[in-house]
Computed example of a mutant assay.
Amino acid sequence: MGVLQCDGYSGYNLLGATVTRVGCWAHVRRKFFDDACKIKGQPTITPPLKLLDQMFYLERGWRDLTPTKCKELRQEQLKPVIKQFWQWCDQAVATPKSRLGRALTYAQNQRSMLNRVLDYGEIDLSNNATERNVKSFVIGRKNWLFATSPAGAQANAIWLTLIETAKANGLDPRQYLEYLLNQLGQLPVFPTEEELAVYLPWQQVPDKKVWRDQEA
């Protein structure tokens, strides 16, 4: 069982029941922002955009809190704002092909998934951070254009996951990968989860400079 935060791309509908989808409020905001900018110049602060901005304002104040406290505050303060947003959407009238109509359809189609952010304190209001991290994969895709097979693409995904996880934990990716390649070969052929767990990025001791990001 896992949790995936993503946008409204229809391909995610193929995910199995073992994956719980959580929507991204930043993608919703982009649609309503486009509607607010339909006239050149400064965007009009429309009611839905004002409510969405209020959501993100609240979240910024909780950025450094524990997941438990964040979930508690979301239930107390964020939930009423989300409720107001859906009430406005339910009453709004717009032609389907207008910018507002497309924004409303996009949001309503993901309503249950967007509301799930209230159930988790560990998940951000948006997946913007994840999208920024995968940009390196998009920018360099010509380098691995010929993965030749799904297995090759999966191998690329594994390596990139290790690299980005190392970065997220303040480690130098290259040195961390060299460390793994040197150490994991000394484990039994079928290591246990406990044996592997000590090599996870967040388990590394901060004062071991060889693994620390040189830019930190």
Score class of each variant (00 low, 15 high):
4 L>S: 07
10 S>Q: 13
11 G>F: 01
13 N>R: 15
14 L>M: 08
15 L>A: 14
18 T>A: 15
24 C>W: 02
28 V>D: 09
31 K>M: 06
34 D>E: 15
34 D>V: 06
49 L>S: 00
49 L>V: 02
58 L>R: 09
63 R>L: 14
67 P>E: 00
67 P>G: 01
72 E>L: 05
73 L>N: 06
76 E>D: 02
79 K>R: 13
81 V>K: 05
82 I>K: 08
84 Q>T: 08
85 F>Y: 12
86 W>N: 06
89 C>R: 04
92 A>D: 06
102 R>W: 01
103 A>T: 00
104 L>I: 15
109 N>C: 05
109 N>G: 09
114 L>I: 11
121 G>K: 06
123 I>H: 11
127 N>C: 03
134 V>E: 05
134 V>Y: 12
138 V>I: 07
138 V>T: 05
139 I>C: 14
143 N>I: 05
145 L>H: 12
149 S>P: 12
151 A>K: 15
151 A>I: 13
154 Q>I: 02
156 N>R: 04
163 I>W: 15
163 I>R: 15
168 A>D: 06
169 N>S: 12
170 G>N: 07
175 Q>P: 11
176 Y>V: 04
184 L>Q: 01
187 L>F: 04
191 P>Y: 00
198 V>E: 02
199 Y>I: 06
202 W>R: 07
208 K>P: 01
